[in-house]
Each structure stands twice: as C-alpha cells, then as structure tokens.
Design a protein around this nucleic acid. Sequence first.
DNA 1: CGGTTCCCTGAAAGGGCTTTCCAACCCCCC
DNA 2: GGGGGGTTGGAAAGCCCTTTCAGGGAACCG
Lengths: 349, 349
Amino acid sequence: MPEAEPLNAKPDRKRVTMMDVAEASGVSYQTVSRVINNHPSVAPATRSRVLHMIQKLNYRPNKAARSLATRQSQTLAVITYNMRFFGPTQMMVNIEQSAREAGYDLIFSNFDPLRDNDVSAIADSVLQWSVDGIIIIAQVASAAYDELVTQFRDIPLIQIDNAPGTTTPSIIVDQYTGSRDITQHLIDLGHQHICEITGPRYAFGALARHNGWQDALAASDLNPLPSYEGDWSAESGYHITQRLLAECDFTALVAGNDQMALGAISALRQHGRRVPEDVSVVGFDDIPEATYFDPPLTTVRQDFNEVGQQGITYLIELIQMPNAPHEQRVIAPQLMLRSSTCPPPDTSF
Amino acid sequence: MPEAEPLNAKPDRKRVTMMDVAEASGVSYQTVSRVINNHPSVAPATRSRVLHMIQKLNYRPNKAARSLATRQSQTLAVITYNMRFFGPTQMMVNIEQSAREAGYDLIFSNFDPLRDNDVSAIADSVLQWSVDGIIIIAQVASAAYDELVTQFRDIPLIQIDNAPGTTTPSIIVDQYTGSRDITQHLIDLGHQHICEITGPRYAFGALARHNGWQDALAASDLNPLPSYEGDWSAESGYHITQRLLAECDFTALVAGNDQMALGAISALRQHGRRVPEDVSVVGFDDIPEATYFDPPLTTVRQDFNEVGQQGITYLIELIQMPNAPHEQRVIAPQLMLRSSTCPPPDTSF
DNA sequence: CGGTTCCCTGAAAGGGCTTTCCAACCCCCC
DNA sequence: GGGGGGTTGGAAAGCCCTTTCAGGGAACCG
C-alpha cells in the first residue's frame, strides 16, 4: 500500500482512520476501537498512548461506519411543525442541550403548514438515518401527521403538545386548565362579557384553551360571546379584535397567545378602549416580552424548558427500556397575574 | 425479546435491505442499486418493477452504509449560537427548507453563551458525521468560536452574521448602514440628544449597529450621549432605560433590537415620558410584533428568510464547485418607518 | 519451576451499500 | 444470420468500524 503521506499535508483530504491511529501508536486497530469504546481490558499505558495519538492526529471515529456496525446511530430526530413561533424554538434549544448531554446527536426537520407535501421527505430522512428515537413537536391533527407517526411505529417516539388524554408517550402542558383558570380569574373580577380569540382550531393546544374558556363560562352560567379563530400572530389578533369590536360588547378578551393579545390591545387602543380599565385582556405562553407590554400582560406561563427537557428524558427512557410505560406526562401551567386585567367598568352595559 | 409487535410482525425488527428488494423483484442487487441511484442503464420496465417492490417492502436505503461507501453524507450541519432569539430561528426554518429541497439532511447544534464549554462536543459531532457542509449562525467573536471554525477548515463552511468586511464565505445583513440610516432619520427629525442601547458588544451585529449610530452622530457633529450594553432582552432594555433616564436628558433612543426597544418604551412610559412625543424610540429587526407595539415601532427590517436561503444556496455552490469564490454577500436592510418617532418636543432643553 | 489465570492484543467476520469490470444476454437492424 | 447496442448479473473490492473468539504473554499459585 504505497501511500506517500507527506507529514502534514493532507493529500486529497485523506481521512484519518482507526488504522492510522493504530499504526502511529504501534497497536492493532482493535485496540484503538477498545479505547474509543471504553472497553475495560486495555492496559492504562496503552490507552493513554492511543488517546494521545488520537489527539495528535485529530482523529474522529466515523459515525457512519460506527452506526453501520452497531446498528444504532446515537441520533435522535426532532420534527417540529411551525417552528416560527416561540414555544417550539425554546423547546428545541432545551432538547438539543439535553440530547447532547446524553450523548445523542440531533437531526432536525420542520414541516410548515404551508408545504406539508414534504412529509414523506421527512419520513425518508428520518428512516434512512435509522435514528434511535424521535421527538415530534406538533400540536396538530392532520392526515399527514398521522401518516408520519404511522411510518415511525417501530421507533421510540414521543410527542409533544399532542392531544390531551391520549396514552401514547407524550408531554403536554395542561392548557385546558390554564385557560379555564385565567378565564375564571376574569370572572372572579366580575366580568360577564368575555370574548375569545383562539389559535388555529386544528391545533390541540388551541382547542384545549378554547374548551377551558368555554367551560369556565359555562360553570358560571355565562353566555359565551363570539370566539374567533386567529393564526397565533399579532396581526390576526388585531384584525379579529376589530371585528369583535364591531360586533359585540365585551369587557374582557381571552387571547390564545401573547402575540394575539398584543394585537388585540393595539386594536382596542385604536378604538379608544383602555386596557384594562375598559377591557381586560389576557394572553397565553408568557413570552419574555409580555412583562413589557403596555400594560404588562396577565397570562399563563408554559414552561417550555421543562417540556423540552422532560421530552428527551422520557425518550431516552423509552430507548433504554423498551417496556417503559406509555403515558402522557402533564406539566402544570402557571398563572401570571400582571396589569392587563381589572374589574369591569361600573357602567358596563 | 418479547416485543408486542402488531400484526405484520417483523421478526426481530429485521431491517429490509437492498438484497431483500432484489430477491422480491427478481433482479440482482446491483440493479436495485442502479435504480436507487438513477443510473441510466436500467430498462423502464425493470425500474418500475423494482420501484414498486421498494414501495411495497417500505425499503429505505441505509444512510450510514451509503455514506460510508460514497464518502459523502448528503448532510449539512447547522450550528447556531443563542438560538433563543428571533433571527436565528427564522433563518433555521428557511435553511431547513432550502436544504431539504436540495436533498440534504440537517444536523443541528446550538451553543449557548452559558455553556460554551461544549464547543468540542459540537465539533466532534459535526466531524464524526463527516458532513458535506456547515453553516454557522453566530454573530460572535470568541476563542471558542474561532477554534470551532479552525476545526472545520477542510469542510465547506459558510458563516452567517459574521464580521463585516471579511472575505470568508458568509452572508450578512448590512447592519451598519441600517443603524446609521435610522439614526440619521432621527437626526433629520431634529433630534440632537440620542442615546443608545446596544446588544452585547461581543456580537458583530451589535457592534456594527453601534458604529452606525456613532458615525451618524459624528457626521452631524452631535455629541454622542451614553450608550449602554444590553443582552437583547426586553428586560435589559427596560433597566438600561431607567438608568439612562436617571443619568441624562435625551429625546431619542436607538435600541439594538425590537425587544430592547419594547423594554425601553415600557420604562419611558413608567417615567411619564410619552413615546414618541417626548422621546422617539427605534428598534432593529422588525419582528412581526413590532407593528403592534404601542406606538408601532419604527425599526430596521432584516430579511432573515433571504439570509437563510442565500446561506444554503451559497453553501451548496461551495460544495459543488470547490473553486467558487470566497466572498461576503451582503443583504441590504430596510427602514420601516412607523409611529415611534417624531420631531423632538419644542421645549427640548 | 511447571501449570493455571488473568490481561491484553490480534485475527476475522460482518454491517449495507457503491463501483468497477466483465460476461452474458436479448432484441433489432442491416 | 451476424454485428451492435442496450440491459442485466456476477464477482469482488472497498468504505470504517464493532464484536466475538482465540491466542500470547506475564503474573501468580502451589
């Protein structure tokens, strides 16, 4: 094998292999393998010699070869739906961190509502890698989604933000309760005319929040006022509020998230309604900016960090113990009372 | 292994290989390989027969094996720094989409300022995958970062948001000009007392914006008022503004991003200053919520979608044509004039 | 001082795919 | 009916690593 390797010049981007390390440190390549995999039976002296050589040659085991040989990839797939928003992003960061700490790499796919034709491309990519586990952040019910999950039926998979009450492995925040409680908070303040702006109804979370609102009203025998469907954006909150203002009288408004609440506040102010004196507004999520809205927004906090972390933890459980229980783990939300709510005006209707 | 497999029990989770497809469709495995790789010399009839069998057996070529054999992975690495913010997230989504369209998978790493000890873990992970290209979204200068880039010197790599004026392959938004122009806008309105809240100074972007502010003032012979360093968060904008209010008189405030502008507005209002009548405030980024701030925020738009897309485009150029020019591609920002600015009060000092 | 144990190391097989080189076809055309 | 071109199969090497399995040597025991 006449390989003329000039000392440092990498001829043709030649890759450093285990063999090179072995030769350089005067052992067989199996021994190098043992060192890499922390196999116990390697003499300390040999180990450190090899380790040193690895360092020196800047050798990295080839993941593809390794994965081929071991039939596991030490890789997890994260699939998000609509990652442009705050929640998924935060979770991603935490997932990445937790995964890395546990020694897993991450491959990332996002499927946007706008182009869900690429579901099969995502499935391909995940399946081809033969990942060890999958985490899906998608609060949607759709045929495409179901198909995706079906394709993955043989792989440990946990869903985040999926339908409440299912027993597939999943992590959700109890958005129903969060929404019910914050609506109740408005009722306790004396509000009787409470409108709602929901997120897109195809999202489980939006639905749960909607139900929370509805049930809180029903429990107090209040007639629900109109509830319209936004798309999570401030813009939609703004437009829907304009519509609500034109259509009915209300003293409080429950928004499906903080951004829509922001849009709502903007529309209200534009119509000369003060917040909270004339109209109380609440949001959902507790984005970091919510404290600095005008007025500071009363909202429901979802601990996305916690969700992300628990997601990975659970997934790894599932990978390591195939018989781990399948359940939905629920995280409690937290009411954040700030200044966008107060009792309704005395002269209210 | 008592795995309760559903009906079509896969014995031992046996993986479907090319061999299986070959047998099932009565051809040799080379032919299957040819079909998969779109080799021309396969009869249409055979091709469709094989394709059909692939479908039926739900076969996916094993990426590890393939990558091992071809010595390329059809995979790109995305490394972000501080992904909790708006910009990187948006870019991520676009990068993912463009990459997928070009047939690449993505592995994702994020290194948080808080835990940059894991740089080597990231390097390991990227190098082990032997990715075909790397895209780094990190507007920071740090030893850790440089080390990272050095490690990757043999791999096509493009940087996003790196130092202006370098000629390594990169995409940046011309933040300097954006900041200068928006400061000039304030000057044109008659402002002479203009404070600044910058992003963290170790971020290239923050620095560029700072320089823009400074140069605009200098060009008009205005003395720069204090400029303090925030961390991009609304909270920091809030606190710094409190400090500025205590320290000096100013009629305009240039914030390093929209979130800090929001915090600033909140602090100003709390001190009884109206925006924009008493104090004009501008931001940077144009997050979707900026329109719905109170008042709607005058800011500088960065087209993150464009950046993400161009990033991948350029990277693929680099991969396919190793001699492609190394340059920095600059995207122009856009002034978004809204209502948070107006001429200074007459009685100004 | 010979035999047994324990450590450590080497040999070899194999994981699923690509590629190259040839040989064997088949069908069509001249 | 023979030459070509288009298609397919065979065989084999190689990508880089893991993982038995067995062997060599040193240390230990009686």
